[in-house]
Simulated assay, not measured.
Amino acid sequence: MSTPVLPGPRLRQLPRTIKPLHRETSGSYLGRLAAANRISHQELSAHIQDPDRIHPGKLTTLHVIHCLSGHPVDRLLQSLPDLRTAELAARFTAQPFKPLPDKGWTTQPVCTRCLAGLGITTHASHHVPVSTNICLRHGRWIGRYGHQLELRTVPEVIRAQRHHYNLVRRHGQPTVTYAMAEATDISFRWWDSDRFDRRWRDRMTALSGPKWHAFKDDIELVASTYPDIVALAGLFASPHLRFLPFTGKDRDLRRFIREVRERAATGYSLEAAGNRDPLIRWIEEEPSDRSLPFYPWRPPSRPAPEQVNIP
Rank of each mutant, 00 (worst) to 15 (best):
S131Y: 13
P72I: 01
R290V: 03
G267N: 09
S26A: 15
R152P: 00
S40N: 06
K249T: 04
D218E: 12
R113W: 04
D74L: 00
P7E: 13
Y29P: 05
P305F: 10
D194F: 11
K98S: 14
S269K: 09
I142V: 14
K211R: 13
A273Y: 07
L118C: 01
V260C: 12
R276P: 00
S301E: 15
V64S: 05
T25R: 08
R23M: 15
S131C: 12
L76E: 03
V154D: 02
T61W: 10
T247I: 03
F196M: 04
E43P: 00
I65Q: 02
P99D: 06
A272E: 14
L253Q: 10
H240Q: 11
P101F: 05
T17L: 02
E262R: 14
R23I: 00
G172K: 09
R23F: 14
A90K: 14
L83R: 01
W282G: 00
A206S: 14
I310A: 09
P81D: 07
L83T: 01
N309D: 12
E220I: 01
P300A: 10
P96H: 10
R298N: 11
T153D: 14
I280L: 11
I257N: 07
L88H: 11
V110A: 10
S238L: 04
S193F: 01
C67K: 00
H138Y: 02
R32G: 04
A233W: 03
T175R: 15
S224R: 03
G57D: 03
V168T: 11
R199N: 10
